[in-house]
Design a protein around this nucleic acid. Structure first.
Lengths: 392, 392
DNA sequence: AGCTTTTGGTTCGGGCACTGAACTTAATCC
DNA sequence: GGATTAAGTTCAGTGCCCGAACCAAAAGCT
């Protein structure tokens, strides 16, 4: 009961920062007395701060504003990338701190070795938090692979060469650990920042080596029955198109994936890290190179065909371009938007917004930190008990 | 608090009928005493029945089985179709009773007139319930159009020629009224019956005049930000295909919709009611007519292209064929399944099931009744208070 | 048969959390 | 400066859940 109400009160403060106790009481339907006592607990746990008296809104005593505390428990985000380990801290207001990337090739290295490095990174991030005088409330880990949602075991991470790696066990039981797919956590990150803050539905299309999507509906990342959600790369864009590695014809990835765009634009690209050639391509686009412009335009139309299907099916008000697509946004958004306007049935009532990822490469780490934080903010009572009574 | 716990207890009984009080206590984590008192309330409200002593499972006293009561409050489902009004009653076990279809062309008739007819149908269904000695706990109304989720106002129903019709107001305030789109409620219906009972994720593709889809994720029908979810008919199947009424090329509806299949198979069809020509087509298929078989096979492949995209994106374990497609299931499922196996990335781990609608044309009415019922079952405490104290 | 063991279900006192009303504090308006 | 309005706190009252003790019923052992 108290658990539920504490969560309600905190949720209200997060939703409308600066609200007074009385305002929270009105919004939640709880009695003023109840809200007061719950707010006291939240303030004691440093989850909420009093921001001083509100500005006058009429006559009568002014309320004391309540805001999420930037010095409350932080979420510690970790991303295990193919060639780096990144960490960052996320405070209850959503602020990001101590972002750090440690390069190092993790491909094919024994998991234990990588996890030892991760552990060092985590300890160092905790030390950062200590220096800042804030507590770390939980850990979020982003992995480029399939993760069992409940146990946190990595079932398969082909790009790392991992299977059945128990990350929570490896990171010790000091703090609650949450493990999830890198794309899902990137979507969580986007969900919490920039233009998307407050949006409850969108699709994030991200070009990395392949093309993936994060699907956010009703404010939650959808993972699907097996955790395979987001394989948009193999949506059919042209049944007569070229054969894709998956065996089918005309997949989005084959026709508008980063490799396809680069080839179409005549940019020579090595295999794995596409950052460099994409930067080259962006340069040519900025210089108005006709071949590059045409290639990106074609990719935009194809992306539009695929995304129009998604938007028609799910009625999301926005699509977000992430990963490699984020860098091409300025040139992609036009043709993509036109194609969406043409094909989306609901476009005449409300056109679909085409946005850029606000976080770029940081999305996954930040999302991991956010996710860890959200566990606490969604159930503050459990956190309060945990810090009050270290026994359990 | 009690509200939450009462709902938990009832949910557990619905999930595992025949469970004893002790079993519920173990499953929910509540104290036996609490469960006893809550069960008493549920039994008094006729939501739960005692089914007598359980069979022996070892030594010790046998528990008294608890089951959802078939004589508890029923959900009254109403479907306002283009050329009929249908009603039915759904009991707490999911059983359907008193299904009745009243033909009558509602196209272009003034809403007030249609609603008067609906009101008569509702009264008659209530009388049916009275004769059966059961209470009606709530009303669900299925409408072929866009509905405001919170107010229950029909924003637009092109096939009826309606806009901004306030159905709850027209049906009086005696009972809680829930209004939703016909396709969404059909999905609710499927969700509750047959092979799908217990499934939490699937996509229902239904061929009526157009092609629509119901999307069920995590056990809930997804409606989208504007309520436009499910416009799968305009997913692109071939960018070089024929021009569709929506202006784009190669839409699923234009290439594998009922009209397209009939034309492809050489079945002459009048415009509006496609029941007859579809029956003709089914006849030809049964007689192994080569043109008909080839046309349906082509449609299956095209449906497969569109649905593979959906399955790749959302990772649903099953697609369900409804409406006109249900009749063609035996011939569609083969090519459709093959196409899904070919195109769905996760198919090698778990192939996508292709199922038939278990309810056929009754899905929407039944779903409407189910939805009304679920409102009660999801929050039994509110219902119990309502019947105990008619004041509120 | 009678006793023990095991499990299901009820009764009852205790305690926690929410509520409503009264009260204090603080601001505006006249 | 008093009236009015609103925020926030204090406090007694109440509802609901819990644990423990207690009855009930069934199986197994002697």
């Amino acid at each position: 009961m108290r658990r539920h109400n504490t969560a309600m009160v905190l949720a209200e403060v997060l939703r409308r920062p600066g609200l007074s106790r009385a305002g929270v009481a009105a919004a939640t339907g709880l009695a003023k007395a109840t809200v007061s006592s719950l707010v006291d607990r939240l303030v004691a746990a440093r989850l909420v701060d009093e921001s001083g008296p509100q500005s006058a809104t009429g006559r009568g005593r002014r309320g004391t504003g309540l805001v999420p505390s930037p010095t409350g428990p932080h979420g510690l985000g970790v991303e295990i990338g193919v060639d780096y380990v990144a960490t960052c801290l996320v405070d209850p207001t959503g602020g990001e701190h101590a972002h750090r990337v440690r390069p190092g090739d993790n491909r094919g290295r024994p998991p234990a070795e990588v996890l030892a490095a991760v552990n060092r990174a985590v300890r160092s991030a905790k030390a950062d938090a200590g220096r800042r005088g804030v507590a770390v409330g939980g850990l979020g880990v982003a992995v480029p692979g399939l993760v069992d949602r409940v146990s946190g075991v990595v079932r398969a991470a082909p790009n790392l060469g991992w299977s059945d790696v128990d990350i929570p066990a490896a990171l010790g039981a000091e703090l609650p650990v949450l493990v999830d797919n890198e794309a899902n956590l990137a979507a969580v990150g986007e969900l919490a920042t920039g233009e998307l803050a407050g949006t409850r539905d969108f699709v994030l299309v991200s070009a990395e080596i392949g093309v993936g999507a994060g699907v956010v509906l009703d404010g939650a990342v959808r993972r699907g029955t097996h955790g395979f959600t987001g394989e948009i790369g193999h949506v059919c864009v042209d049944p007569d198109g070229p054969v894709c590695s998956c065996g089918a014809r005309g997949c989005l990835e084959r026709m508008a994936g980063p490799a396809a765009i680069l080839a179409d634009a005549g940019v020579t690209a090595a295999s794995a890290p596409l950052d460099r050639p994409l930067a080259d391509l962006a340069g040519r686009l900025a210089a108005a190179d006709p071949a590059a412009l045409a290639a990106v335009r074609r990719a935009g139309v194809r992306l539009g065909i695929a995304l129009a299907g998604v938007v028609n099916l799910l009625d999301v008000p926005a699509v977000v371009l992430g990963g490699g697509y984020a860098r091409l946004h300025d040139w992609l958004a036009g043709p993509l938007g036109e194609e969406l306007d043409r094909r989306v049935i609901a476009a005449q009532w409300s056109p679909t917004a085409v946005l850029v990822s606000a976080l770029g490469g940081k999305a996954a780490v930040y999302g991991a930190g956010q996710a860890a934080l959200r566990e606490i903010l969604a159930d503050p009572d459990t956190y309060i008990r945990r810090v009050a009574d270290p026994a359990s």
